[in-house]
């Protein structure tokens, strides 16, 4: 009798396990349909893993945006993609790449502590995320409460950056790294566009240097896009950004190497880089970069 109950118990466990794995499969299938709808070709597992690695190497927009604040430039919402434009993005490609654009705009707004604009752009980010079935990473009320409870928006900045990171990790786990690739490209394009606008307006050399450093990031973005060479949208982006690369090639970045030193400060390990980078970024080249990235961005935002 005891054995009978034991067998029933074991079978019940198996049934639960089988059903839970089926429901996960169903969900993954839904997502892969979304991924396929904007892509004519699937990528291999190895390419997908490579793309995942490259995505991890690309700095989020916040790094470039923080330089904009340091330049002393005042807040200018006119250079951003208007938040009420999101309705016109109908394909998953347009939604994903503009989600990246709006994410970068949100980072810019957060840095300048403009709460009203931040909440408006957050709404747009949530709308596009929900359309792409990744809305679970942004809870408006929670983020608004964080913004309300803080004098500055640092916490909101950290939450939104970390939510975008979670979204990217999730998309890769769900074999939807193409969506992640679009978001990342859009975010990088927007951050570079804004940096060029502000840099040229302020004639700010540190910002020129930051723009020039994007030569290295661009190589990573192009490598990422090349993983999706069968995707027509990725190919167009790749070709456009390859044009930009020819401009970036005019920039010189040289490193003079020196051994790093390590010290313990307050129980923490601190590594001091004794090498230095020499960047030669003439203003006319920055203008060319600005023109090229503006043209690419115009195509993206429509």
């Amino acid at each position: 009798m005891k054995n009978k109950y034991f067998i029933i118990g074991l079978f019940s466990t198996l049934v639960v396990l089988i059903f839970s794995s089926c429901s996960k499969k169903q969900s993954a299938d839904d997502f892969s349909q979304i991924a396929k709808s904007d892509s004519s070709g699937q990528i291999s597992q190895a390419t997908s893993e490579l793309a995942g690695q490259v995505i991890k190497s690309i700095p989020p927009p916040i790094e470039m945006q923080s330089m904009i604040l340091s330049s002393g430039a005042t807040y200018n919402a006119d250079i951003l993609n208007p938040s009420d434009e999101a309705e016109k993005y109908s394909t998953n490609y347009h939604k994903a790449i503009n989600l990246g654009i709006y994410g970068a705009d949100l980072a810019y707004i957060n840095i300048y502590n403009h709460k009203e604009d931040a909440l408006s752009y957050l709404n747009t980010v949530i709308k596009l995320s929900e359309d792409l079935k990744v809305g679970q990473f942004f809870d408006f009320e929670t983020i608004k409460r964080v913004a309300d409870n803080n004098k500055n928006l640092d916490s909101m900045l950290n939450i939104t950056t970390s939510n975008f990171e979670k979204m990217n990790n999730y998309l890769q786990e769900q074999n939807r790294s193409n969506i992640s690739m679009y978001m990342l490209t859009g975010g990088w394009v927007e951050a570079l566009y804004v940096a060029c606008k502000v840099g040229l307006d302020k004639k700010n050399q540190p910002l020129y240097d930051k723009i020039a450093e994007q030569k290295i990031v661009l190589d990573q973005v192009l490598l990422l896009l090349s993983c999706y060479k069968n995707d027509p949208n990725a190919k167009i982006l790749h070709d456009d950004l390859h044009e930009l690369k020819t401009v970036f090639d005019k920039i010189k970045i040289e490193t003079v190497y020196a051994e790093p030193t390590m010290v313990e400060e307050n129980g923490q390990l601190v590594v001091k880089d004794n090498s230095k980078t020499i960047i030669i970024a003439p203003e006319d080249v920055i203008k060319e970069i600005s023109n090229s990235i503006s043209a690419t961005r115009a195509k993206i935002i429509g």
Binding site: E213, I216, Y257, Q268, D273, T277
Partner: peptide
């Protein structure tokens, strides 16, 4: 480092690169 495992590293970067 030196038989100790630190739970974090701070890197003061001067040279841009991957």
């Amino acid at each position: 480092l030196n038989g100790k495992v630190y739970p974090a590293i701070t890197y003061n970067c001067k040279s841009t690169g991957i």
